[in-house]
Design a binder for these strands. Structure first.
Lengths: 348, 348
DNA sequence: CCTCGGTTGGTAAGCGCTTTCCAGCGTAAA
DNA sequence: TTTACGCTGGAAAGCGCTTACCAACCGAGG
C-alpha cells in the first residue's frame, strides 16, 4: 500500500497476510479444478486480497496456465463502418467468453496485416480473426497462409470473414450471390442499362460483387458494357472520382449505377448530385452492405444487407469452437433491400 | 518442428541449436542495452531462430521486463462512428509506439466500463484510455475514480476523452464552446426559435452541448423555451422518437432543431421527413461531431466538426508522455460547419 | 612481464503465477 | 484396532524470458 511504490500486491503478499501458502492462496482466489479450500482459509485469503487490493497478473497467469484470454482482430480500417460494426460483434462475442480483443487496423497494407498476425502470435492470442477482403495476389496469399500456419502451429486458432481462400475457418460472405440477386431485383424493376463502380481490380470482395452482378445481368440479357464497368479506389472518394469521370466521358444513358459498397455508393451519389443529376429520377444508384448509419440518407439507398454484427459474433464461434484442427465454414447471405434510390419513376 | 505438438520453440531451443547460452540468445535477438554479442554468435543465433521459426513469448517478456506493450481503450460503443473514428486514431498512434490496443465496448453500461478497467489492470496495460461521456452520478464517478487510482497505483497511466471530471489526464472536448458558437452562427443566419434534442439528463456531453447552446442563445435573447428542450435517448432512434413526439404536441413554430450529435440529427431528419416537413425549407436541423460518412447526406448537415482521429492520437500522447504522476490536459475545439440543413430560404 | 580496464559469454536469480506431488489428518470399512 | 481412502494444505517445480553478476580473455600501459 506504499503510495510511491508503483507495483501492486502479489499473490505471495496475499498469502503471507492471510497466513497461508501460495498454493492455498491461488486456489482460494482462482479455484483450480477439483480442489477445495476450507471455508475459513478461503475467506481469510479473500479478505486479505481485498485489503491489499490484489489484482492477479494476467501475464503470469497466462504463463503458468499456458493460455491467454486474448483474441486478436485484424481489420483493414476500424474507422470504416463496415469493419467497426463487425468489430462490435466480435468484441461482444469475445466478451461473453471472457476474452479481451486486441484490434489492429492495417489501413489496407498487406505488410501491416502480416506484422500484426506475427504480433498476435507473440502475444499468444487464443485466436486471430481476419476481417477484410483478400487481394488476388498469389504471393501475398501464400505469405499470409504461412503466417497463419505458424500461428496455428503454436496452438492458436484462426478464422476470417470474407473469401474462403486461405484454407482456414471462414465466415464466407456470399458476395456473388448477393450481387446477383440485387441485379435480378433491379432488372425486375425495369432497369436495363447498368454501370458498375467495381473497386480495385485485385480486391476479391469488390470483384466478387461486380462479377456476380455482371453475370446475373448477362443471364438476363442486360450485361453492362465494359466501358461502364470501371475500376476505382475502394472508398467514397474513389467512387466519386470514378463517377465524375464516367460523366465527363459524355453522359451515359444508364438506368442505374451499382457501387460495390454503400460507402462507395455515397461517393457516387455525391458526384451525380454535383453534376446536376437527380437520383433516382435521372439515374438509380445501389450499394452493398447496408451500413446502419446510412439507412436514413435521402434518397434511401438500395443495397444488400449484410448482418455484420452477427458475422462478427459468428466468426468468433467458428474460430474458437470445435476441433482445433478442423476448418469450419459458415455462409452468410445478403438480403436485398430496395429503397428509393433505384425507384425510377420512368420505369414504373 | 514436430507438427502435432502445438507449441512453438522457446529461446532455450534456439540457444541450444545455436550452441550458446540462454543469455546470449536473448541478447542476440532482443539486444539488451549496453551489451554486444559477437557477430559470429549473433548470426548463429539469428539463423537458429529463423530455422526454428522462433517467436518470442510476449507474456514471458512482459513478466521478465516488468512491462507490457498493451494499451487499453474503453469506449461506449465501437459501432458508433464517433467512437470508431476515435479508436482509429488511438490504434494508429499506439502502433507508432509499438503498442497493441485492446478495445472494450461497454454498450454504455457503467458496470461493464468498470469491469474492463479492472481487466486492463490485470493485463497490466501500459495505459487505459477512456472514451465516452461521463454520467452525472457522484457514486459512479467515485467508483471509476478509485478504479483508475488502483490502475495508476499499479504503475499504469490513464487518460480520457471528454469531460475533465475524473482527475486524470484528459483531452477536453469544448462541447459548451462549440455548441455556443454553433448557436451564435445559427442566430446570425436568422434563426430565432430553437428546439433542442438534449439527450439523456445525466449525460455530460449531451448536457454540455445542450446548455452551451442554450446559454449562448440566452445571451442573444433567443433562449429556447423549456418545452422545446427535450430529453431523449442518446441515439438515432431516441432523437426520432423525441422529434415525433414534439411534432405530435402540435407543430411548433420552430426555425431550427439542434440535436446534440449527428447521429441524433439523423433521427430528427427522418422524423421530420416522415411527418411531411421539409428540411431546411420548413425547419432547419443541426448536429454535432461531423461524422465523416455522414458528410454526404442530403441536405448537408450543419454541425460542429470534431477532429476525432486527432483526438484519438492526442489522448495516447497525453496518456503516455511526460511525468507518470502528472495530470495533463489538452483542449480541442470544434469547428462550425454550416451546410444546407440550416439554410432556410425564408430567413435569407 | 604484470596489472588493469573493456569486452563478451555464461550462470543463475528472479518475474508472479499454477499445479503436481506429497504429507497429515479424520473417518469409514474391515 | 488396523488399513484404506478421501480431503485439505504446503513445498516446489516449472512457464519463457531478462538481467544482474561473475569469469575469461583481449590488448594496452607501466
Amino acid at each position: 500500500m506504499d503510495p510511491d511504490q508503483p507495483s501492486s500486491a502479489t499473490l505471495a503478499d496475499v498469502a503471507r497476510r492471510a497466513g497461508v501458502s501460495l498454493a492455498t492462496a491461488s486456489r482460494a482466489l482462482n479455484g483450480s479444478v477439483g480442489r477445495q479450500v476450507g471455508a475459513a482459509l478461503r475467506d481469510r485469503v479473500r479478505q486479505a486480497a481485498v485489503e491489499l487490493d490484489y489484482s492477479p497478473n494476467a501475464q503470469a497467469q497466462a504463463m503458468a496456465r499456458g493460455t491467454t484470454a486474448t483474441l486478436g482482430l485484424v481489420v483493414h480500417d476500424v474507422a470504416d463502418p463496415y469493419f467497426s460494426t463487425i468489430a462490435s460483434g466480435v468484441i461482444e462475442a469475445a466478451a461473453e467468453r471472457g476474452l479481451l480483443v486486441t484490434v489492429a487496423s492495417t489501413q489496407r497494407d498487406p505488410g501491416a496485416e502480416l506484422r500484426h498476425v506475427e504480433l498476435l502470435r507473440q502475444a499468444r492470442a487464443q485466436a486471430v480473426v481476419l476481417a477484410g477482403s483478400r487481394i488476388d495476389d498469389a504471393g501475398q496469399l501464400d505469405t499470409m497462409r504461412s503466417a497463419l500456419r505458424a500461428f496455428t502451429r503454436a496452438g492458436g486458432r484462426v478464422a476470417c470473414i470474407g473469401q474462403d481462400v486461405l484454407g482456414v475457418s471462414t465466415v464466407v460472405v456470399e458476395n456473388r450471390l448477393g450481387a446477383a440477386a440485387l441485379a435480378a431485383a433491379l432488372h425486375r424493376e425495369g432497369h436495363r442499362r447498368f454501370g458498375v463502380l467495381a473497386g480495385p481490380p485485385g480486391h476479391l470482395t469488390a470483384r466478387d460483387r461486380a462479377e456476380g452482378f455482371g453475370y446475373s445481368l448477362a443471364d438476363l440479357g442486360a450485361e453492362p458494357s465494359p466501358e461502364h464497368v470501371i475500376a476505382c479506389e475502394f472508398s467514397r472518394d474513389g467512387a466519386y472520382a470514378a463517377t465524375a469521370e464516367l460523366l465527363e466521358r459524355g453522359r451515359p444513358a444508364l438506368d442505374c449505377l451499382f457501387a460495390v459498397t454503400d460507402v462507395m455508393a455515397l461517393g457516387a451519389l455525391a458526384a451525380l448530385r454535383d453534376a446536376g443529376l437527380r437520383v433516382p429520377d435521372d439515374i438509380g444508384v445501389a450499394g452493398f452492405d447496408d451500413i446502419s448509419s446510412l439507412r436514413d440518407v435521402v434518397p434511401g439507398l438500395t443495397t444488400v444487407r449484410l448482418p455484420m454484427v452477427e458475422m462478427g459474433a459468428q466468426v468468433v464461434g467458428i474460430a474458437l469452437d470445435g476441433d482445433p484442427g478442423a476448418v469450419r465454414r459458415a455462409r452468410v447471405r445478403g438480403e436485398i433491400v430496395l429503397r428509393e434510390s433505384t425507384q425510377r419513376p420512368s420505369l414504373r
